[in-house]
Design a protein around this nucleic acid. Structure first.
Lengths: 344, 344
DNA sequence: GTGAAAGCGCTAACAT
DNA sequence: ATGTTAGCGCTTTCAC
């Protein structure tokens, strides 16, 4: 097809002007530098005619800014990532900034590689949804810490990394969990339980904390129960066994607060299977972080996280840091409220 | 925090060697160029000590390769994009190549901007899932065509762009549609209908074509019906009205082939609402491109597209093009078979 | 009003 | 066995 790329130098030679003149005109500062209209027109015409396109790599190199931000995710398939990404893209687009995306494949070593790789590519900043290790899992945050200490601006989304002091945009998980738990109690639940992943991230600790604070205030500390899931494997029988034992012992909870949507779907299925009754018909209720998909109502209470808005805010915050602004101490962590829905 | 980045020059000065030596050692060609072990060790030590990280931008500039590929999608939220992306990432990772991702926001002008922007950033190649315009929609493929003619290697995924001759990795849509339709007839359907989006892409034309070829071979050409949806708006009443009229006229089909999953979910809901009967219990059957999500069986027949594999193959093909290989004419278009499931 | 030239950090051809 | 140097394409300062 077309041969080599045409450069600013080609344009300059073609028109017998200097590369400086061409550059000035093309960057819209022709007026400012009082380039004559004639020259300007000729340059614009040749640009069009030869199909010149600027080399953004060369430009980045010269100006020390790549107009690119890096996004590091644990996992592509979790659907909430899409919504976060939508928000990120929306504001990145406004700033004419491109996105380099890398996922950690649920492996902290891959995450580390990705972070360094993006930094080496001179992204202007990094948006990170950090990898969340199970409590018993082997894990090192060495690289994350180093990247966080480096000069690259960083904003963390959805969760905080313990021991790393950077900007973050999070959901108001504790309040939401407390609220949802209170709703369960309002509806008559007297034997509440927390079902969650045994993962060491702020988000989940807060959800659990919110649950317990409400339950304890209601004087239910002695009947409350808990099931913590210790592995990623969705085929694991941990939850089923816990439920079976509960039923056998007569301690089946009548209200569940579930930390994540996938886990809640699994819980619901198991409960229907084991008790023959759906949630919300008198035997038990389920509230969970996450929401129903359009065509499949589940009868569970929803705690809706503003994922897209989290993406937007985080990206705006990142651009603020990139532009050199110092974020005041009290604005470093932004918390967004969640909505509780479907309390039937 | 840490000050300026440390460069190869800094290392060279620190050790009183030349930048060339440092560069050679760091790129692992120390042996080859017979750099002494001592020098090599000193360089490696200083690299570590000063926290040197290579500037990939500068490198790209010099070697004319960015080790980055661009990915252009119509839309982030459609769930099949995730799976395609997974496949893409898998092979990109193997090649130590980063991904720049941009979505078209269902707007061909945005798509055009994204394509040019990525090209300006000197991606080594482009993976495109082209924007698919409705048949009556304003649309121009000018930019897409120009990009396709440029020197940048391109592979198109999931659909072909009319009039653009490039490599593509696609599902075997025609065969799959014909197969699913045949299954519907096998199960006893005698009044089949095609329900699809009125969108001008190869994929959907082939699905429709496959449906009709089977139906006509079965001698049902005179009873077959069709509903084409002419707008993106999911709130539109077009489908409901069509069904209502069919019921009133006594021409409600007993077997539907639906072009896309979202549309099928909508159809199913409407049919349950209007007839009081679920799919598969005798009144009607639905087959559609797409699959059930884990916890929500729909009773519809599934045509499962190998999205992840499409991503993988397309990316491998792109790397082949990037490496300069010429793809033989008969291998330019790769078609992957789909699986038909849940034929109850 | 426009041109000449330096330099961003790196690699590779050529010298020594 | 290592150093020198040109140059990737662009921006920007300074000179005329």
């Amino acid at each position: 097809m077309s041969g080599k790329r045409v450069t600013i130098k080609d344009l300059a030679e073609e028109l017998s002007v200097s590369t400086a003149t061409v550059s000035l005109v093309l960057s819209g500062r022709g007026e400012e530098y009082r380039i004559s209209d004639e020259t300007r027109i000729r340059i614009e015409e040749a640009t069009e005619r030869l199909g010149y396109r600027p080399d953004r790599l060369a430009r980045s190199m010269r100006v020390g800014r790549s107009d690119t931000i890096g996004v590091v995710f644990p996992d592509m398939t979790e659907s909430f990532m899409n919504h976060v990404l939508e928000g990120i893209e929306e504001v990145a687009n406004q700033k004419k900034t491109s996105l380099m995306i890398a996922t950690s494949s649920l492996d902290y070593k891959v995450e580390a590689r990705n972070l360094e790789s993006l930094q080496d590519r001179r992204v202007d900043g990094l948006l990170i949804i950090p990898y969340a290790p199970f409590n018993h899992e082997k894990y090192s945050d060495r690289v994350v810490k180093r990247v966080a200490r480096s000069a690259t601006p960083i904003v963390v989304l959805d969760r905080m990394i313990p021991g790393i002091d950077t900007c973050a945009v999070l959901g108001n998980d504790r309040t939401a969990a407390a609220g949802a738990t209170a709703r369960l109690l309002d509806k008559g639940c007297r034997k509440p339980a927390y079902v969650g992943l045994d993962i060491n991230i702020s988000t989940l600790q807060e959800r659990r904390g919110g649950f317990y604070s409400t339950v304890e205030n209601a004087g239910l500390a002695d009947v409350v129960r808990e099931c913590l899931i210790r592995r990623r494997d969705p085929e694991s029988d941990d939850l089923r066994n816990w439920l079976k034992e509960s039923i056998a012992a007569g301690t089946l909870p009548d209200g569940f607060l579930v930390s994540t949507n996938g886990l809640a779907l699994k819980l619901r299925k198991l409960l229907i299977e084991l008790t023959g009754r759906p949630p919300g018909d008198g035997l038990y209720r389920i509230a969970r972080f996450g929401e129903d998909s359009e065509y499949f109502p589940t009868g569970m209470m929803e705690v809706v996280q503003p994922h897209k808005e989290i993406g937007r805010r985080a990206t705006r915050k990142l651009f603020k840091k990139i532009s050199g602004a110092t974020i005041p101490e009290d604005q470093r962590i932004e918390r967004l409220d969640m909505e509780i829905r479907n309390e039937t």
